[in-house]
Nucleic acid binder design. Structure first.
Lengths: 150, 150
DNA sequence: ACACCGTTGAGAACGGTTCTCAACTGGATT
DNA sequence: AATCCAGTTGAGAACCGTTCTCAACGGTGT
């Protein structure tokens, strides 16, 4: 529902913190931002190996990008840890359990009210939440129907 | 806000599926159900080793219990994978980022409406969601204030 | 051109998870 | 009670994703 942040905005985050936005970091971020689905670190490393990006660098950069809030960790239908490039602002992923396509949405309005109630009821100071919704996307559903019902 | 399922109810789930509820499985489930906080598999294995429960069995049983819906996977403040014994019915965890204490709550009413909107907007068939809320529990907060402000 | 300091890549090391296989357990059968 | 059998268990090996090590590299300022 929103697009990933543009590259120059990512670069700005690095610049602002005085962290070099190297070729490898750009390539790694670009890989996640370009995929419209959640991908694992292993997949990214495999894809970028031929581009001359080392495995260790992929791990280090994903860590870095996550710390900077430029990559978000989610898990797919089988519980595998994947990463996605979040769009501008706070949002939540709707993930297809079959092909891992991700659609982002903003559900904060719904959660904010819930959080206020929780804080009042429990005395916790609430500082965050994590919401993922799982489903089957239209194209995977029709593909599946093609298989089963004949 | 609700208590974990009682042991006999767990046993009933096993019996119903024709899966043996062995001593080790009981001990493992009991360990998670008895902890009022999220615990890692490693912690469980360490704690149960002296009781004669092998590490491989802990991994296998946690897998099994998760598949049966008797254990839910969450992640703590540092992203570590933990498990908790969910209470009767569907609920969500409110996790303390410091001590990993878990308070369960039922937020399905809030999410159901959101899911309906999402399904309509995206065409996905929604089959589930994962909601965790993070905060600092009252006792960790006062402990922290004791340290800082003097 | 040079020095400096953070980044990178290859490979080793590490550690959590899974696999292997023989021993065991408990329920059903005789 | 003895036997059988399918499923479970534990010890340790194997596996594989992740982190660490260290020498080479790059690019920034002087």
């Amino acid at each position: 529902m929103t697009d990933p942040k543009p590259a120059h905005e990512i670069e700005a985050v690095f610049r602002q913190k005085g962290i070099p936005f190297t070729r490898q970091r750009r390539q790694i971020w670009h890989f996640f931002a370009g995929a419209d689905r959640a991908v694992t670190i292993t997949e990214a490393a495999d894809a970028l190996r031929s581009d001359g990006v080392g495995q260790a660098t992929v791990y280090r950069s994903v860590q870095l990008l996550s710390d900077l809030g430029l990559l978000a960790r989610v898990q797919d239908g089988r519980g595998e840890i994947c990463y996605i490039a979040p769009p501008i602002g706070h949002s939540h992923p709707l993930i297809c359990g079959v092909c891992r396509t991700v659609v982002r949405f903003d559900g904060d309005g719904d959660v904010a009210e819930l959080e206020a109630r929780l804080a009042a009821a429990t005395g916790f100071s609430i500082y965050g939440h994590h919401l993922e919704v799982y489903g089957i996307c239209p194209s995977c559903r029709s593909a599946r129907e093609g298989e089963h019902g004949e």
